[in-house]
Structures are given as C-alpha cells and as structure tokens.
C-alpha cells in the first residue's frame, strides 16, 4: 500500500499527531478538530473510517506490560504442512492478542496475556497438549524503550 495516495492530509495528521497525549477533556474530538481546523463530526467520521479500514487499531491506552496482568512471548516450531491449522488454533485463544508467522525454525510467534502467571502458563500448557509441540516461553525481563508511538514517513 502506498500511504501517499490512500490518505489525504487530514487523515495523515489524524494518524500522526495524536498517537500520544490525547486530550483528556469532555470533548476530545472537538479539541482535535480545532487543531486540525475542521469539525468534530468530521474527525469522528474519519477515525471511524480509519478504524474500519484497519489503519487504526483503536484510540486508547497502551498499558505498560505487566501493570494489569502477566504476558509472555511464545514461539512454536511448526511443520510447514501444519502451520495454517496450528495458527488458527493459537489465534482461537482470547488470551492471544498477537500471532505472526516469522522466518525461522520457530515460525509461529504469539503473545499470551492473562490475569496472572498461572493463567498464562495454563494457556501454554493447553497449546502444547493440543498441538504436541513445546512452546518457547520468553517472558519480558527488562523493557528498554519508551513507547512514544510510531513516526510515519509519508511518501
């Protein structure tokens, strides 16, 4: 996808400029509209469309890892012929929020998030039992970055 042709200036500014420090006011979208010199309804309509199209995941909070519960990054080494089936099985857990195929012997990578360590371990055990494959369990030990959002480079 070429960002340049798909999104106009207002879309781009909505995507770029409000990734953090979203206004905590009664009418936050009106505040955005004022800064963008457009209307509140237009801002809301555009954010709805960007969300529907998939460019925006949500307008909301990115919560620090382990503030609310526990999570781990897990990986499976899946035989190629079973990858689709096992990816679907893994995505089926509501505790799994990210699930990607990656280029490696460990080719299926997913994040398991739950209330506590026991609940996370129970999901990994269940996946191991159902697939016959032993997951790598790689919990976060130390974060090094501050999540400041993502600076988009428009063409």
């Amino acid at each position: 996808m070429d960002c340049g042709s798909t999104y106009d200036t207002l879309d781009r500014r909505l995507l770029d400029e409000f990734q953090r420090g979203f206004p905590l006011t009664e009418r936050p979208f009106a505040d955005l509209a004022e800064r963008l010199q457009t209307g509140e309804g237009e801002v809301i309509e555009r954010l709805r469309r960007l969300k529907e199209e998939g460019a925006v995941s949500r307008v909301g909070a990115v919560v620090a890892p382990h503030a609310l519960g526990r999570s781990t990054l897990a990986a499976l080494a899946v035989p190629a012929e079973r990858l689709d089936e096992i990816a679907e099985l893994v995505s089926g857990y509501h505790e799994v929020n990210h699930n990607y195929e990656r280029e490696h012997r460990f080719n299926l990578w997913f994040v398991v998030t739950a209330e506590d360590e026991d609940a996370v371990a129970a999901v990994l055990d269940d996946i191991a039992r159902r697939t016959g494959l032993e997951p790598l369990d790689l919990p976060l030990l130390e974060p090094f970055h501050l999540d400041l959002g993502f600076a988009l480079q428009w063409r």
């Binding site: 996808m1 070429d2 960002c3 909505l14 995507l15 409000f18 990734q19 953090r20 420090g21 979203f22 905590l24 954010l47 199209e53 998939g54 460019a55 925006v56 995941s57 949500r58 307008v59 909301g60 909070a61 990115v62 919560v63 620090a64 503030a67 609310l68 501050l146 999540d147 400041l148 959002g149 993502f150 988009l152 063409r155």
Partner: peptide, 15 residues
Amino acid sequence: VVKRFGVVVRHRELG
C-alpha cells in the same frame, strides 16, 4: 501504567 494514550496505528495497513 498507561504508557501512552492516543491513536494506535497498524503499521502493516499503513504501508
């Protein structure tokens, strides 16, 4: 606890 609050974009969909 909240590291940032705002528009969360999907990289893949944005090129």
